[in-house]
Structures are given as C-alpha cells and as structure tokens.
Amino acid sequence: MTLREMKPGQQGKVTSVGSAGAMKRRIMDMGVTPGVEIKVIKVAPLGDPIEVNVRGYELSLRKDEAAQIEVQVS
C-alpha cells in the first residue's frame, strides 16, 4: 500500500521511497527512509496535503508525493 492510500490513524513501516531525483532525496533527508515507522495524522481541510508523524515529528507532504512511498501497514 502507498502512503497516499492510508487513512488518518493508520500506521506502518516504510518499505521503499519512490523514484530517484531531488524529490526522493528531499523525502529521505526529512527522515522518511526504508524501515522507519510512519503514522498518518490527518488530511488538510481541502483534502490535500496530508500530515504524518515520522521520527517523532510532524511532516506534511502532498498526496502525489505520498503516492511514491510504499508502506507495510501494521
């Protein structure tokens, strides 16, 4: 399942982070690397972006970006 498909409150383990390039690097720089626990907190009032908790802090990213992150839901 991708991070995009997860519902608020669901959590899981990141298995892979999308295609190469600046976007991937940025996502990884922010701590979203394979193996890390991630939890969806909420969706923005207009339906996009989403807010997740990773490595003890809150990160927001767009659904298109979240679609590149594969997660094993626990």
Binding site: A22, M23, E58, L59, S60, E65
Partner: peptide
C-alpha cells in the same frame, strides 16, 4: 525548478 511540499509542521 520543481516545487514540492515536503515540509515540517513544527510544534
């Protein structure tokens, strides 16, 4: 320049 929205929501 591509734009992205990977941003911290600070406390």
């Amino acid at each position: 320049e591509t734009s992205n929205f990977i941003m911290e929501l600070p406390q």
